[in-house]
Design a protein around this nucleic acid. Structure first.
Lengths: 335, 335
DNA sequence: CTGAAAGCGCTTACAG
DNA sequence: CTGAAAGCGCTTACAG
């Protein structure tokens, strides 16, 4: 209805040609300061808003990047989304965040839509399953893309992977638990055979095997509910289990509730260590030991690398792992 | 690099004109089925991807909507984002989610960026503060916009507000607490004098006043940390407080941790009722009573109304309130 | 330092 | 039911 003013309206108002306005818009240094000021004023006056679609069509970068997350309900990913978006904003890019909710169909739709909208780069924490047609499309479109925190197993297409050193994290956690709570250490959470599950339990498995022990698994969805239910199950039927390493903090937090319900004292009767060290880990009761993954720093640095790829055509390494460490709190340290 | 195929390439491959391809792309009924099939095949063959920028420029809707959330770390808003995005996807729109993180500057940046990218509609859970220039821009651009779950106080610009019936929620909670735990009922959380705080505590305040009681407030950030700290403070210095109504579940959840730490038994020594009924409320220990706001249904319906505005030019009412109810669980019911 | 002109990939009346 | 032509609002060499 109220037609948006265009670059031409601004040019008229400022008494220059539209080329000059365009130059001002991109901060070109070849415009006289005085002219520039006039144009800027005209932009204000006309309430002009830049039309990305037109700019984009003509070949300019869209200034748009896409972030696709597999589970926006998980604070770990939410923290990633937050830090990534801020960093992108800082560098002048708008971030379109999409939540695939672990659904490969939705993920495909999101990817298509982002390509259509002309994103300059893509960061994806992939959902599992589905075919890799959408990934092929990304590749075909030549869009710089990294996968983060999770890797797609095999497949014809592969993007550089930025993730945490989950193996070491699991090793640290398992070592600490074995030392503090004896041999009956179980691993809880993670859908079996998924790439990410294999990674996250690898350290635990290795440590157990090294000690000549058999790993004990309770695989399942990595959310609070599964943790809650598994805690009750363990309290009832598994007196041999003395300590638990979880797939992530969400599971651990759920277990805290389950054990409380069952009257088992965490940090006394049984030890738990989580994974991710989300904020809540230090705000629950008892406070949760956890493998700390500094997702904030991770997000920021990954953005920098990705934008280097976009702007300077520097392709990153195929795999980058960020270090993790173990934070000890009441849930796993007998006092 | 690998140049994206255009509508012309497809036309060539299919042996038709580019107009026909365009028609097929928009599912026009005036294309012969046979021709359509050919074109579709050509699209597959050429790995053509639609270029929104071009379409958008020529006047077609961008198929893009924007959702701006004030706090992506709060599960309540995350659930909203999830349901809203899915509903939009169902109706053929891509959703760009942005997190203002309660920062009016960032919010302004997000708004500008979304306008530039030509969103067809905007849904905003606003951050407070800052001037309303960005909102004026939205209005000027004529973009159908609703504010959700939070209202901007006053201001020159106003958009239809879709929210919950917080007043009734507070009334129900306060009534229940007064009946079950006696007169010493406090309200915890919410930054004083913010519109949303006033709304969320209004029911509690009214109920207390009606009973001839003075309201007791502990205002602050509405997160776990504040809840945790306030619980410890109350355990130490406020034996007169027997029950608590919180601003939201996050605060209540934090208090659960604080009281556990302090050795106060929630549901026995003191009662707590939360607000929002996020998933975690039924998965913590003790389970949390809460004012249930069905944010999922809310999100879906709000999307429908907003898209009706976009597609059929039906402007919604200035204010719509969704009903809430009280869910009783162990945290507030003495057994 | 600034202007005139071409063109990005679509959609949309308008003919046929 | 399909094609030829104009135009959306920018950017980008190219002159001047």
């Amino acid at each position: 209805m109220s037609k948006r003013p265009t670059i031409i309206d601004v040019a008229k108002a400022a008494g220059v040609s539209k080329s000059t306005v365009s130059l001002v818009l991109q901060n070109s240094s070849s415009v006289k300061a005085e002219t520039r000021t006039q144009v800027l004023q005209a932009i204000k006056d006309t309430r002009y808003v830049y039309n990305r679609a037109a700019a984009n069509l003509r070949g300019a970068g869209a200034g748009l990047v896409g972030l696709i997350i597999n589970d926006l309900r998980n604070p770990y990913y939410t923290e990633l989304a937050t830090s990534v978006q801020m960093k992108f904003a800082e560098r002048g890019y708008a971030t379109a965040i999409g939540n695939s909710d672990e659904d490969p169909e939705l993920q495909a739709q999101l990817i298509t839509s982002m390509i259509e909208h002309g994103v300059s780069a893509l960061m994806i924490a992939p959902a599992y399953g589905g075919d890799d047609a959408p990934f092929k499309d990304i590749q075909q479109a030549g869009i710089p893309t990294v996968q983060v925190l999770r890797s797609l197993s095999g497949g014809a297409v592969s993007f550089p992977l930025f993730s945490m050193d989950y193996m070491t994290g699991g090793l640290l956690a398992a070592d600490h638990m074995l030392t503090t709570w004896g041999k009956g250490i179980a691993f809880v959470g993670g859908v079996e055979s998924r790439e990410i599950t294999i990674e996250r339990k690898s350290g635990y498995v290795k440590k157990m095997r090294d000690m000549g022990l058999d790993p004990i698994y309770f695989h399942g969805e990595s959310n609070r509910t599964f943790g809650y239910e598994t805690a009750i199950e363990i309290a009832k039927n598994h007196p041999e289990i003395k300590g638990i390493v979880t797939f992530n903090d969400l599971v651990a937090l759920g277990m805290l509730g389950g054990f409380a319900q069952a009257g088992v004292k965490v940090g006394e009767d049984i030890g738990i260590v989580g994974f991710d060290d989300i904020q809540e880990a230090s705000q629950c009761y008892p406070k949760l030991s956890s493998v700390r993954c500094d997702v904030n720093a991770f997000g920021q640095q990954t953005v920098d690398v990705l934008l280097n790829w976009v702007e300077k055509d520097v392709r990153p390494n195929d795999q980058v792992r960020f270090p993790v460490d173990l934070v000890l709190r009441a849930s796993s340290t007998r006092e």
